[in-house]
Write a protein that binds this DNA or RNA. Structure first.
Lengths: 232, 232
DNA sequence: CGCCTGCTTGAAGTGTTTCAACGTTCGTGG
DNA sequence: CCACGAACGTTGAAACACTTCAAGCAGGCG
């Protein structure tokens, strides 16, 4: 791996506090690759040989069953994915494909497990990261089971708004078809849901969203820190 | 905590490999309590002061939003719950209540975090446990998003059958209303779903389930290790 | 025995999917 | 530069799945 990629990875909370020695040991066995869009990186069921890190571009995690497919998450720089499979030395539960031209680092899972056993600070951060991931999925389950699709969309918009700085106008970061799948609905249904939200002052044209009455949509969406907050 | 409870807890994978010294240090600050049925143990949003361990009975994890409620999981002896909140020192994401008369051990979260930092083997097992929990929730999300309610029920029955020894006749371990909520459906819908499964050779009376044609129901349910296996 | 609770059933209403057609945008090649 | 195709998004109509409400049924317990 080129040393120019070290700082980005070292900057991740996961790798920030480990010793230099162990960090370099991990980097020594790793490599970096550039992928065009729409390339399958991993397929669910495969053995988890590498911990992946998205350095640029973006990657979609998705799952399939019985010829159906659903979008599970979008991974953006700089972050890791499939840490749990790496740690457990178990098969991937999700597939991954690039959405755009992407730069991805691959760290052999065996090395990750090895360093985990000898570097307490790294171990500490692996746990924090895993706990974080776990809580995110639990929140997602609550979102799916406790809310209607219209409520999920409204809360997604509020989260996206907050993430992009809180302005009343902001962009959707992914295609609508993928957003629909993330939210557990069909593209047609999403399209109609956007129309329904017009009555709460939400305007959409292309990827641009405008929220004209913040109070109104918040009153409908009823966002909760126990479902919608990223950090906690 | 009475020493008679030590072996059960020590037997958990999570606590099995740590040093005696650290194990006793954890037990020293802990206590055990007996609860009648239908008692709220924790409420989502509360600070995570204790790691809980169900020693006997059973505990339901559930979540609420906007005056709706959904069942998230049932915890049976001997296992822990809300480990992630304890480790992250973050608020509980789920509430918990006893389903029956239950014996529950409480270990102060601060002690757990303290021992985690000094006992590498304990840390290793915390990570394994968290990774396991994470993967379970991911599987549950796939179940919810990729399957219809009828398919979820069919696969639940097959899992339950396997868990109870693989016999063609077995019992449902929870009330149907709770099962419905776990599977993301209404009690009425579950009742009708059971009827629909009759055409695949599934007979239900009370809590007793009989599968007369294993091939038939399996062919419909199409269970997958990447959704339905507990261990991996 | 009678009450309570959980389960089932029916009928009506709502929400969501499916299928097919059309519109739009964007990039490519004539 | 325009024309075309491809992919995405939207719309409408019909079918389907699921929920809601209300009533009835069955088993367990005082």
């Amino acid at each position: 791996m080129p040393e120019s990629d070290f700082p980005d990875i070292r900057g991740l909370h996961l790798f920030a506090e480990m010793s230099d020695e162990n960090f370099f040991a991990l980097m020594r066995g790793s490599y970096v690759q550039n992928f065009p869009p729409q390339i399958d990186l991993i397929e669910e069921g495969d053995p988890s040989d590498f911990l992946h890190i998205v350095l640029s571009g973006s990657v979609e995690l998705f799952s399939s069953w019985n010829s159906r497919e659903t979008s599970m998450a979008t991974v953006r720089p700089v972050s890791t994915f499939i840490l749990a499979a790496t740690i457990k030395d178990a098969p991937y539960l999700m597939s991954a494909r690039t959405l755009e031209k992407s730069r991805v680092a691959l760290i052999p899972s065996q090395d990750v497990r090895g360093v985990f056993d000898i570097d307490a600070k790294f171990a500490r951060n692996v746990v924090t990261e895993l706990a974080q991931c776990y809580r995110s999925v639990v929140k997602n389950t609550k979102d799916l089971k406790l809310r209607t699709s219209l409520e999920r969309l409204a809360n997604y918009l509020l989260r996206q708004q907050e993430r992009t700085g809180g302005n009343s106008e902001f962009d959707l970061p992914i295609e609508k078809r993928r957003l629909a799948s993330m939210l557990g609905m069909t593209p047609e249904n999403l399209s109609r849901a956007f129309k329904s939200l017009q009555s709460y002052g939400v305007k959409v044209s292309g990827n641009r969203v405008n929220i004209s009455d913040q109070k109104d949509i918040e009153n409908f969406a009823k966002p909760s820190p126990l479902i919608d907050d990223y950090s906690t």
